[in-house]
């Protein structure tokens, strides 16, 4: 009996992909993240929302250490994040990230954007990297654009390329920072569709977004942040229909009112 418990605990441990414990961050004197505690299980889909400036971006950027945290612990794939550069690089290989402004490399073709990291980080032979890249480009329905440069693509296409670029590294977690908020309205759906497909394939995802439709249909858990703190977290139905905190109610009434 106790042996079984231990095995279960071990399994639990192993299935926690990300864990933030009492994490704090300051920009100079400005306390931007306050005592963040968050556990993400393998395969979990989490949507993070909250008003602008509440620290959403900063929090997910701490997870791959684009920003350093000053206290508390962050564990990603069983590796604690410290300022050990080698360990960090190892963690980053397994954590994909998509940005609001796509950040494709403008001086490289779409294909070159995709194969860069597999070749130079994963040390994959060029031919294999190209095959892999083409597979993912097909998956995001954009294979015919592989020889173009990012500047020649629409915003929606660029964001799909950015997603494919991350996927080429076979990440265990994907972070999205407002992936659709720089897009024209008619392009939002094509990106959300790709993300939803990714979620259905079992990818662990942390997604900062205000697309509440996406949150309702995809998320396992919605997190609401304000003033650098996690104010409330719940599964989507409860979160939207029965928010506990007044701050959450106010926020929801603001974004859902129109």
């Amino acid at each position: 009996m106790s042996g079984q418990n231990a095995a279960l605990a071990a399994k639990n441990e192993q299935d926690t992909v990300i864990s933030l414990v009492d994490m704090n961050k300051w920009y100079g004197d400005f306390h931007v993240l306050k005592n963040i505690n968050l556990e993400v299980q393998r395969g979990e889909r989490i949507v993070i929302c909250g008003p602008s400036g509440s620290g959403k971006s900063t929090m997910i950027r701490c997870i791959n250490q684009l920003e350093e945290h000053q206290s508390g612990t962050i564990i990603v794939n069983n590796q604690e994040l410290t300022n050990n550069t080698k360990a960090l690089e190892k963690v980053r290989k397994d954590v994909g990230m998509c940005f609001q402004h796509f950040n494709l490399f403008p001086h490289m073709t779409i294909l070159e954007n995709l194969i860069l990291a597999p070749i130079w980080v994963r040390k994959m032979p060029r031919k294999d990297a190209i095959d892999l890249a083409m597979t993912y480009l097909k998956r995001v329905n954009i294979a015919e654009q592989s020889q173009k440069y990012p500047g020649q693509l629409s915003g929606g296409q660029q964001q799909r390329v950015a997603i494919a670029r991350s996927l080429c590294m076979s990440p265990k977690v994907m972070l999205f920072d407002e992936p659709t908020s720089a897009l024209d309205p008619e392009m939002i759906k094509e990106v959300l569709d790709v993300m939803e497909e990714l979620a259905n394939d079992g990818m662990t995802m942390l997604c900062v977004t205000h697309e509440m439709g996406f949150a309702k249909s995809v998320a396992d858990r919605v997190i609401f942040m304000d003033g650098g703190e996690i104010v409330e977290e719940n599964e989507p139905n409860e979160f939207f229909n029965n928010p506990q905190m007044d701050r959450t109610q106010l926020f929801l009434s603001q974004i859902l009112s129109h």
């Binding site: 994909g96 950040n103 130079w120 991350s166």
Partner: peptide, 30 residues
């Protein structure tokens, strides 16, 4: 060069030197 360029490269797992050589320098020189 846009800061996001270096961040995207680092997020993909490229180290500082590879990021500089493949991403930052070519754009800066252009």
């Amino acid at each position: 060069v846009d800061k996001g360029q270096g961040e995207a490269a680092v997020a993909l797992g490229l180290n500082r030197w590879k990021t500089t050589i493949f991403i930052i320098l070519p754009q800066a020189l252009k």
